[in-house]
Simulated scan of single mutants.
Amino acid sequence: MLAVPYMQMRGGSSKGLYFLASDLPRNEALRDQVILDAVGRDARQIDGLGGGNPLTSKVAVVSKSSLPECDIDYLFVQVVVGENRVDTSPNCGNILAGVGAFAIENGLVDAQDGITIVRVNMVNSGNRCDLDVQTPNQKVQYEGDAAIDGVPGTAAPVICNYKDIAGSITGILLPTGNIKDTFDGVEVTCIDNGMPVVLMRASDLGVSGYESADELNANETLKAKIESIRLQAGEAMNLGDVTDKVVPKMSLIARPVDGGHICSRTFIPRVCHTAIGVLGAVSVATAAAMPGNVAEGIAEVPEGDVKTISVEHPSGEFSMTLTFDQQNNVTKAGLLRTARLLARGELFVPINK
């Protein structure tokens, strides 16, 4: 048995294991095997700490950053449930919400009295996010009055300020070069502003876009059509063969019904999310604000270069403040998340690493 120090944290509406890079093997292949043993290799993850769901099968690997403008490096690892493999191609903004607290708790960043700004290099994409972490008396505070949909109760706010995230994975905001494309007769908008996402009008796929996640997950015909579009869009977005990747995310959109600006149902990539990912929401909101996209006539987007946009999802809504430049690129995305430390200690992997 190999004992590995860890923390388990809820970050935003996800839950994951957080490790110091120095506590894991330096060899990437061995590191990934340790992570698989830690989270669980089978669909139930009965022999690991995962919860048998993509939202609870996530890992953060954190270290001091060698970049002078950043404090820490954050590598996100998605364990693909039931497939005995990991994917490091996407970012995760929910797990990122806990990275600042983890870094402070482990001495990678010195806490300030009041608020500590943790400058994060997102290793998966090379983008940056500054986290405002509540640290009264130079201690991380988890309790507070901030509430986010998809998470019970309240907690201390974590403000995530994303910088220049256009083309995070593909290298360009509109990876196909078009504001609209057509796959299998369905019009889509392919965008990458923090997360590669394909937007599709729900009505074009024979659903309303207001169904529950369970209803959509039970619709095998719908999921097969979405997957066919995803494979074609992945190639067109310069992501290559995405059969074994969790990007692009697929987002069904509809008119807002609960006071937001657009309604979404997002697949990550083949399972409908009970909420929406942080960076996925940024990409959906960005696309909705661009002229000529598939959300025209559906989204209700406010005017101005600084827009607060609310994306509705199955368990509530996600609001963000986006700052646009004259070329309609988002230069800054400000989001409110929360995080909570759930456990800390050592976990044991049953293989000799």
Rank of each mutant, 00 (worst) to 15 (best):
L174C: 09
N219T: 00
I262Q: 07
K180I: 14
T182R: 14
G234D: 13
N217G: 10
D192C: 12
T176P: 11
C263H: 14
E215Y: 00
T176A: 06
G209K: 01
A224N: 14
H261E: 07
G153H: 01
D184M: 05
A155Y: 05
P196E: 07
V257H: 09
L222K: 04
P248L: 04
A166L: 07
S212H: 04
M195R: 03
P152A: 01
V207M: 04
C190I: 03
I172E: 14
T176Q: 04
Y162D: 00
C190D: 11
I169W: 00
R201K: 15
G171M: 08
K163N: 10
A166S: 15
V186A: 10
G240N: 08
A202R: 02
T170Q: 06
N217C: 07
G260P: 08
I179M: 15
V242A: 02
A166R: 13
D164G: 03
A155V: 03
I253D: 08
S203V: 08
D181E: 13
M200D: 11
G171I: 13
G177Y: 06
S208M: 01
P157H: 02
K225E: 06
I172Q: 15
G234C: 08
H261N: 15
T189A: 14
G234Q: 12
I179V: 15
A233W: 08
M200Q: 13
P152G: 03
A213R: 07
N161M: 06
G167M: 06
G260C: 09
A236L: 10
D244L: 10
P152V: 00
G206E: 00
A156R: 02
K245I: 03
K249V: 15
G234L: 10
I229P: 01
N217I: 06
L205I: 05
I169G: 00
V188Q: 08
Y210C: 09
S212D: 06
V158R: 02
C263M: 14
V188P: 08
S212K: 11
G167E: 02
E235Y: 09
G177R: 07
L216Y: 02
G209H: 04
L222G: 04
V207W: 07
G167P: 00
G206I: 00
G185T: 02
S168M: 01
P248N: 09
I226R: 01
G194T: 12
E220D: 07
V257R: 12
E220R: 09
S264R: 14
I229C: 03
P256L: 11
A224W: 10
I169H: 03
V246I: 14
D241H: 04
N161V: 12
M200K: 09
Q232V: 01
P157D: 03
M200P: 13
I226L: 15
S212I: 07
V186R: 04
F183V: 02
M237K: 05
A155R: 05
G206T: 03
I172L: 10
D258P: 09
D214S: 10
T221F: 03
M200V: 15
C263W: 08
G171D: 09
P248C: 07
I169S: 01
V198C: 13
A254T: 00
A254N: 04
K223V: 09
S168L: 02
E220W: 02
I172R: 14
R230S: 04
E211D: 04
I159C: 10
L205T: 05
L216D: 01
I229T: 02
L252Q: 06
A156C: 11
A156I: 09
A155G: 14
G185L: 03
